[in-house]
Write a protein that binds this DNA or RNA. Structure first.
Lengths: 329, 329
DNA sequence: TTTAAATTGTCAAACGTTTATCAATTTCGT
DNA sequence: ACGAAATTGATAAACGTTTGACAATTTAAA
């Protein structure tokens, strides 16, 4: 790998001059600039990031901690974050912090700090809150409470859940159940459950919640749902994520349950993937692009100024998708 | 951030000793080791990766260049790669090289080299081959020809395509079409097309190929398929990826085409996602886990020894999934 | 108690940059 | 052609670590 001094030698100038060209400071004649650029091109020179970061520059690296990119929602979110961060000149270190593995997440956080990342965006939550608090890199959270002064960005889970539940009730259904992920304290997705419960209460209906942790193996999930549908067919099911909703519909079909005549299903997330490849699924769309731009925007503020005053919570609006299909239209 | 000298001061030893403890060389008494470990713990010390890499150590970073993680297949592959690399002590820099954007990919490659990554795994191919050739980091490719001496790992596209086509023919279908991605030269996925063509030829049947580039916007893809199915309903369709297969089935349904009575569809990829959430889809399963372990294994060999002699091509076996559903079982 | 071996320390160079200081040289306007 | 301004260079310190050479000290074996 060519280094600064090689470029200087080839261009016939001093290393100081080359550095001045690269960092664009001091006064430089157009002629030498061109000579240096030419030499850089010839040698295919790339400044060594390690060296310049060591010297004090930013690393231009951001750590992304999410439960994994194989889930379509996180896949799309991570892809969007990466795309946008790239445009801001940042690169991404990917951390798949599968649910439950606190030790791995700890390792990640350690590593990200050792690598001097300029910031972290986290959408996983396996470690206890106090540990997040002492991370000294700028940190923004998605949909999870990680500690005071760590801004949370999320979609309007409560309003979304109300929308979903109401859409089911609007079809005339009264026996409406909710399928929710693990109900961890301080987790904004609890609002999805709350939204459901509140709407049901307002209508004087009995809520029924079935809990299926996010990390449940698909086979187990399948079995659980099948057992549920076999013993009793509700009129409506609000699954708090699309994949679960799709599974409910699949299982219903295999059980010969008519959709939507007997059973109406609505999901949550509304990824591009489900909207395009499963368009008949009614769902609540999270504004992924808005979520990523906001998170990046907040992160950039904290990177510029570590003490930037930010809100504790940023809640972005959701919208219903394909609710008509609940009516069989 | 605490540094080496802080640890030394707290432990009451010299920096050399601390470094010796960390890197485990020279002779050390158990007592000082413990003192140093304790000090590291107390200060929550993390060696600065930048500094140690600059000094000559590996960065323990691997670049992953793929078309994006929002596609389930790549999402699962990347997740698997990341998980396994983590266990090997490596971290991942994620590069979404959306199809067609050579400039972005060039930027990525430049950046990865500037960051001194220990290796690269690439599953995208937007730059001309010569540019890959001059990358000096160890490089392994997925399913794409990137140049001589750059090993390609892929599933058995040819055999898989034969399997898929045969499965359709086995149902009695004769008018069988293929829906394939862009047919770029040197791209092993061409083998999927070849496999189809060969089987058709062997049976004396006329092949029909419709090309839909991978990067096509879903709406356009939808329209294309709809147009195709509206003008003529084949007896069988082999879509060279599952998402397209699913779309074909969705559109067929909206057109009132009976599946599988009138139209049989088989896909390719067989991700965990489709198998779990779309189990009625017949498909060919790529061995994602085997693919990632092999790629990592090869990469590790090249990292240990840059001149490690490796094969040009590694082809991993595929297996059919849910072929029975083509028969309506 | 002597002596060899084990342990720890001191010092300095190196990795590739950035940046400040000061000096030397070139360019330019008048 | 003179002086001021612009340009370039030489040198060195700094970022945090590793590693080698060598010296000093401690420990343990004979």
């Amino acid at each position: 790998m060519a280094k600064l001094s090689d470029v200087a030698a080839l261009a016939g100038v001093s290393v100081t001059t080359v550095s001045r060209v690269i960092n664009n400071y001091g006064s430089l004649s157009e002629k030498t600039k061109q000579k240096v650029f030419a030499a850089m091109r010839d040698l295919n020179y790339q400044p060594n990031s390690l060296a310049r970061s060591l010297q004090g520059k930013q690393t231009k690296l951001i750590g992304l901690i999410f439960p994994g990119v194989s889930h379509p929602f996180f896949g799309e979110l991570v892809q969007d974050l990466e795309d946008q961060l790239f445009k801001h000149g940042y690169r991404v270190i990917l951390c798949n912090a599968s649910a439950g593995d606190a030790e791995k997440e700890r390792d990640y956080v350690r590593m990200l700090q050792a690598n001097q990342v300029d910031g972290i965006i986290a959408g996983a939550h396996n470690m206890p809150v106090p540990e997040y608090q002492k991370i000294n890199a700028p940190l923004i959270s998605f949909d999870r409470y990680l500690g005071d002064n760590i801004p949370i960005v999320s979609s309007d889970n409560y309003a979304g859940a109300r929308l979903a539940t109401s859409a089911l009730l609007d079809t005339g259904a009264r026996d409406v159940w909710v399928l929710t992920g693990a109900n961890r304290p301080g987790n904004p997705t609890n609002d999805r459950l709350r939204g459901y419960q509140d709407v049901m209460a307002e209508k004087g209906l009995t809520p029924h919640a079935v809990e299926i942790p996010f990390s449940t193996a698909p086979e187990v999930k399948w079995a659980t749902i099948k057992r549920m549908l076999s013993s009793h067919v509700p009129e409506g099911v609000f699954a708090t994520d699309d994949m679960t909703a799709i599974m409910v519909m699949q299982i219903a079909r295999t059980l010969g349950i008519q959709i939507p005549q007997q059973l109406r299903v609505i999901g949550y997330d509304g990824t591009v993937l489900t909207r395009n490849y499963y368009p008949e699924l009614a769902t609540i769309v999270q504004p992924i692009t808005a979520i990523s731009s906001l998170m990046i925007d907040l992160l950039m503020q904290r990177i510029k100024d570590a003490d930037a005053q930010l809100e504790a919570r940023y809640v972005l609006p959701v919208r219903p998708y394909a609710a008509r299909s609940l009516l069989g239209e």
